[in-house]
Amino acid sequence: MGPATPATVVRQGRRRANGALESEVLAALQRAGAPLTPREVQATLPGELTYSTVVTILSRLHGKDVLTRTPRGRAYAYAPVADEAGLAARRMHKVLDTLPDREAVLVRFVDGLTAADELLLRQVLSGRVFP
C-alpha cells in the first residue's frame, strides 16, 4: 500500500478519513478527563498513528476551537472545551450563525422533533429542566 495522503491515514489495514480520526482523538480526550500531551493521546489510541499525525489532528481541533491547550514541558497538553453535548450545541450555534433566516431554521428544527423531544425542549425553555 502506498503512502497515506493528507486526507487519510492507514490504520490496521483500513483507511480513515481525518474526520474519523478527529472524532477518535476527541473521544480519547473526553475519556481521559484531564489534559493530555500528543504522546499521551497517541498511547491511548488503538492502531499505529504516528506522533506527527496526532499532533496535526490536535492542532486542527485546536484551530476549530474544539480544544484548549496549555504548555507542558516541550509540548502542549490538550483538553476539550466542552463535553459531547456542549460540542453539539456549539455546532448548532455555528450553523445558525451562518444562515440569514434563523427563525425559519428554528421552526423547521422544532417541526422535526419527536413529541418527547418537543416536550423536553418546552421544559428547558420554561426553566423546569436544567442541564
Rank of each mutant, 00 (worst) to 15 (best):
A4Y: 11
L36C: 03
R16V: 12
R72A: 15
L125A: 15
E84R: 11
P3F: 09
E22R: 11
A115P: 13
L49W: 07
T8N: 07
L67K: 01
L67N: 02
E103I: 01
D97G: 15
R74N: 10
D65C: 08
G33M: 08
T37M: 06
D101H: 02
P46E: 12
M1C: 13
S126D: 15
V41L: 07
S59C: 10
R72E: 13
V25D: 00
T70I: 08
R39H: 05
A4L: 10
D111W: 02
L67M: 06
L113T: 03
V9S: 09
G86T: 06
G19E: 15
L61N: 00
P80Q: 00
G13H: 09
A88N: 11
A116V: 14
A104D: 00
R122G: 09
V66T: 14
E40K: 02
K94D: 12
T5D: 10
T114F: 09
V107E: 01
P46H: 09
A27N: 07
R69G: 04
Q30W: 11
R90E: 11
G47V: 09
V107Y: 01
R31I: 08
G2Y: 06
T98Y: 05
V105A: 04
Q123V: 02
G127N: 02
R31Y: 10
L99S: 07
R39I: 05
V110T: 04
Q123I: 00
H62D: 04
T50P: 02
K94C: 07
T56K: 13
Y78S: 01
S59E: 10
S59V: 12
A89S: 12
L29I: 03
S23Q: 11
A85I: 08
A89W: 15
T114K: 09
V66K: 06
K64T: 04
A85E: 07
H62K: 04
L26W: 02
L119A: 13
D111I: 01
T44L: 13
A85S: 06
